[in-house]
Design a protein around this nucleic acid. Structure first.
Lengths: 296, 296
DNA sequence: AAGTAGCGGATATGGCGCAGTTCCATCGTT
DNA sequence: AACGATGGAACTGCGCCATATCCGCTACTT
């Protein structure tokens, strides 16, 4: 028995007449009659009573109909499911990001845009620090991550720098320097520098320290902030100053002022890193769209 | 797409290897490869990754598998359902019977035997008097009935007499005649005769009245019993006597004695009547087995 | 009542396309 | 170099469909 037989059977069952069923299917009445006869021979019982005005289902035909009626739709559904999967319209991807990456407007936009374009793909988001994200890629717990570093080591892992943003100073709002729109880094040579631990974000850490050194002074290490939000809070508490990527200025807090840097401005890169071995179609789509969104 | 494609796909998915799958199916590896290729072309996406040691499902292949995996079983189930229906192993029949017919041991045996042989057939049983049963056949509310009459009028209704049973006397156990094993009907010429109304069972009524007349007396009509059980109760109350088919002796009651009739014994026929137009296979089986059971 | 037309299913025949066989090439692994 | 696995090419036989026609039944007309 083939799906062809089932399609022919269903057509006759619906029309109650071989001639009309044949016309609907697009073949002649004699081959349709023969195909139904072949099916009845294979099953071993008649599916139709032939009557002068057409054909009526037998009890066997009724029982058969009840089971095979869904077949054409199921077949179509199988094809559609395969096509959607082949286009990456279903599946799942696990995406990580650092806190500061999330403040880049393009990152939430990429999430929003991808979700809208591929509603059938289950996208899981996870915030973590850079070290954790890299470990997650290596351990295959994450498929792609947004982070602020411009190189990554690891087999089967690719990284693309997708944007660069200038850093800005974060000062207590009562600080004398905060009265001006631009502040030279060297003015803060006597202030404590607040940073997250190097181990959680080495690239950012090194860039900030280098920027201070390039301005002619060795930074005085201040309070260690466990995470980015803490940096802002400590500055608000007048424990010192810091440097953050410009999009962080969205994080407003009482007692905190953001100021552009006078002179050479350190740059923070935003990168997309992802697993490139056995990449799923959904992930490939995600990466393509992310890179495309950052090309102009 | 045909079931053949699905069967071939499932074989490769299970074996992970075209060569072994082909061997399992019973065709060569090249035509299997071509058939899968045709399927992939029709769907428009690859279902397998070809790798050096065989083939692995793609995401599209996995999605396709999830939908089509049940197809072979469903196809088999459809064939089986049609075959069972064709053999009358499923369906429903509605059978009626009179109270006295139910006392014939063969009637419950037919019910028991049919239920065991065709567990998939839903058999509904209904007790009613003869007139109601005949009306039920005519109205197509019943498919077959056991009743005590030897003719029936009605288009599309057939009747077979399946057994004959002698009638016996039902007497109050204190009655002088009850002291003997055999009693002549004429001994009861002065006693009241208890019967069910003629309208509910004309054949039985007429036979009993004829038997009395053949014994030389006109019966004195006694209490009218609404149903058969009432007849026994009235006799126990010493309101008179009656005649019933011999199997009724199973209905024992205090104050009641059954006695064989001396002389000519009236006979009660048990018949099966059924609808014969558009007879279902299940009903045909029921009738066949009932007639076969009563042939020896 | 008989004859005819129309409708519908089934049989017979022929042809084309498809599925399977056979042989062999290519690639990757051992 | 040998082996295992997939896929291409040539060939053959079978199956599905088209076409012609027959048969049975019903309805209509004479």
């Amino acid at each position: 028995m083939e799906l062809r037989h089932i399609r022919y059977f269903l057509a006759v069952a619906r029309e109650g007449n071989f001639t009309r069923a044949a016309a609907r299917i697009g073949i002649g009445q004699p081959p349709l009659s023969q195909q139904i006869r072949d099916l009845e021979n294979e099953i071993g019982t008649a599916l139709f009573h032939r009557v002068p005005h057409g054909a009526e289902l037998t009890e066997a035909g009724t029982a058969f109909l009840e089971v095979v009626a869904p077949f054409p739709d199921l077949a179509e559904r199988a094809i559609r499911a395969a096509q959607r999967a082949g286009r990456g319209e279903v599946g799942s991807i696990r995406v990580g990001f650092t806190a500061s990456a999330a403040f880049s407007p393009s990152v939430p936009r990429v999430f929003r845009d991808f979700r809208r374009s591929y509603p059938g793909v289950e996208m899981t988001l996870e915030e973590a620090n850079s070290a954790q994200l890299v470990a997650g890629l290596r351990d295959e717990r994450l498929d792609a991550v947004f982070l602020r570093q411009d190189t990554i080591a690891g087999d089967g892992i690719r990284l693309h720098v997708i944007s660069s943003e200038p850093m800005v100073l974060v000062l207590p709002s009562g600080h004398p320097a905060a009265q001006r729109e631009k502040v030279a880094l060297s003015e803060l040579r006597d202030e404590a520098l607040i940073l997250t631990p190097r181990a959680v974000g080495p690239t950012h850490y090194d860039k900030v320290v280098s920027a201070c050194r390039d301005s002619g002074f060795e930074p005085q290490m201040g309070q260690i902030a466990p995470q980015l939000g803490s940096v802002i809070n400590f500055v608000a508490a007048e424990l010192g100053f810091s440097l953050v990527p410009k999009p962080m200025t969205q994080l407003q807090a009482k007692g905190v002022a953001y100021r552009e840097i006078e002179g050479e401005v350190p740059i923070a890169q935003l990168s997309l890193a992802y697993r490139s071995n056995d990449i799923s179609t959904a992930l490939r789509n995600f990466v393509s769209r992310t890179l495309a969104a950052h090309q102009s």
